[in-house]
Design a binder for these strands. Sequence first.
DNA 1: TATTGTTATACTCTATAACTATA
DNA 2: TATAGTTATAGAGTATAACAATA
Lengths: 148, 148
Amino acid sequence: MTSLLDFKLRRAQLLVHQDFAGALAKLKLRPAEFSVLAMIAKYPGQKQTTIADKLGIKRANFVFLMDGIEARGLAVRHKDKSDRRSHSLYLTEEGVNFVERMVALWQDHENRIVATLGGPENRDQLLHLLDRLLSFGNEEGESDAAGS
Amino acid sequence: MTSLLDFKLRRAQLLVHQDFAGALAKLKLRPAEFSVLAMIAKYPGQKQTTIADKLGIKRANFVFLMDGIEARGLAVRHKDKSDRRSHSLYLTEEGVNFVERMVALWQDHENRIVATLGGPENRDQLLHLLDRLLSFGNEEGESDAAGS
DNA sequence: TATTGTTATACTCTATAACTATA
DNA sequence: TATAGTTATAGAGTATAACAATA
């Protein structure tokens, strides 16, 4: 054989994901919920489909993800006034506090991963390579999920 | 925010995986089946649980994966003579031919990915970083799924 | 007619518990 | 009693189709 990039990618992703999920478990939060809250925090007032698209989540599946978040009082859906079909998403006051705590947990996780990788230079190198892979299907510059 | 390694890893893995799955679809083969056949080709005569462990597949889930492979005549289970509880796995003659074709498809896939990454040096760099990540949970030297 | 949010549904992967036959 | 293979089942995550309200 040879490298089997696919399998190494999958297993590495799984390990990182499990560490991330384990960290978020302290807040009874799953990674998908983390990403939704982070996205609303970054783009408050966006409608559901826009947020779902940015995260690569089908709008049908987004609904009950958002149901849970709203039921916990972390974010709310507002009927958009100019287009009453749309729901604009906002963090609640409690949601803002929650996001702060969840980001701290994420930071701990990130530090563990960076240490495993052997330093921030290696993290940047990995991110660079992943960006190249992400330009595979879509040559447009749409993707987000990472920030500045 | 900052990097969100977890999400980039997941999305990159998904893209690579989909390209791989698409390539294997020509043989009506799924990535998991590819990995099983590749593992049997590399370690013929190993028992089911050993192969499953190497691939990180629960033995319960391995059973009907192997059922499909055996039903297609690509590999067989032999009762081990010294321990009649165990099933030793071997490729059939047809399986050997099949593996040759599937490896060719995998090679095409790998070439596409390497091109996207910007050359073999970048592939090696990525593999190196993934290996570091894979040493996260298990500090023992057990993992395989990649070869020489 | 098309779009937003929604419901229902299905398919794949993965995980666990319990059974059987052997050891 | 412990282990290998098996069966059944349940839970995530993801995908599609169809509907109501609105555009």
